[in-house]
Amino acid sequence: MRHQSGKALFPFIIIVLVAISGYLYLPASQGKANGRAVSATPVQAHTVAKEERVITVNSIGSARANQAINVTSAQSDYIAQLYFDDGAVVKQGDKLVQLRDAEEKLDIKALKVTLKEEIRQLNRLKDLAKTQSAARSQLEAQSAKVDSLTAQLEATKTKLAEMTVYAPFDGLLGTRNVSIGSFVNNSTVITTLDDISIIKVDFQVPEKYLAQLQLGMQVSANSEAYPAQTFTGKVSHIDPRINEQTRSVRVTASFTNTEYRLRPGMLLHIALELARFEALVVPEKSIIPRQDKHYVFIVDKEGKAQQREVHLQTRFSGWVAIDKGLAEGQQVITEGTLKIRSGSKVEIKG
């Protein structure tokens, strides 16, 4: 009896399954069920618009000065005068330090007197050489003596000039490490001088972007010291070598720093702009991938969902740029796509 009742139920089960399948695959927007209109499926949608988008590469860089030196003296002596304070802003040619130079000034004065007398002797021998052959050897010796004194005088003048230390370029001085009366030589760091009117930032870019890198590309930088400010610069150097360990290329960006906000040694968050373009942009969650193709559901004028094949241009930060398959102003469904099919009646919520 149980065996026979099981056979009798089998056709009934098949009919029920067919009915359920027909109900599930029947578009919600077609026909009526039990004399009542099928309700629209609630979904969320995004209006397609053409937007400007920027493709960037993010990195971290360390700031350094455009020019930076340790200020030292070429000569060794005691400091007679100091003309700067800690952290002073100086111009190229400003006097910074004066060493004691009285000895050099006296040497120059003595050499000038001696040279004048030797030149007089040289001129006398030149006159004698015109009539006396024996005076020619003396003339050559005197000429060599004059040349030697002239060179000695020029060397002393150079030494005297080096007794004064000048700023070699515009910049910001650091801490003063010496005082009047201090003895300095060419290894004594008097202070530091940094040209920070331009700040350079070195950062690494993955090797795969090498072909896209160009001088002059725009670079944005942010610092934790100024969280509300974005600094804008340009790529000024691209290293010709690839780092074998990191498979990246070092890029340098230069930033105008007239307000001196950026300082050497700062850690900066860098965004290198690789491309800027206008495109139709939709949320990435609206894309339905199937094998090697991509689709979206749009809402037509009758409030029905219609499936459309689209071509993806690029992806970035949860958004997708579409270059084929959509038009500006259309609405693409972003949530509820699993509940609908092409032709389903939908109602946009939110």
Rank of each mutant, 00 (worst) to 15 (best):
D85R: 13
K112S: 07
R100F: 07
G87M: 05
A88F: 07
D107W: 01
G87V: 05
I79F: 08
D101R: 11
V97Y: 08
Y83H: 15
F84H: 04
L106Q: 12
L99W: 05
D86V: 11
V89D: 00
D94G: 08
D94N: 14
L96T: 03
D107L: 06
E103Y: 07
I108A: 05
I108N: 04
G87K: 06
D107F: 02
V89S: 10
V97W: 10
Q98Y: 03
K112C: 01
D107I: 05
V89Q: 12
G93I: 03
K109A: 15
K95I: 12
G87T: 05
D94S: 13
L111M: 12
E103R: 07
K91M: 05
K105G: 03
L96M: 03
D101W: 02
N70S: 14
I108V: 12
V89K: 10
Q75C: 06
A88R: 05
L106D: 06
Q75P: 01
V90D: 04
D77M: 01
A68N: 14
D77N: 15
D85Q: 14
L82I: 15
A88C: 01
L96F: 05
D85P: 00
L96H: 06
A80C: 01
Q81R: 12
V71G: 09
E104C: 04
A88K: 11
L82T: 10
E104M: 12
L111T: 02
R100H: 10
D85M: 04
Y78P: 00
V71H: 10
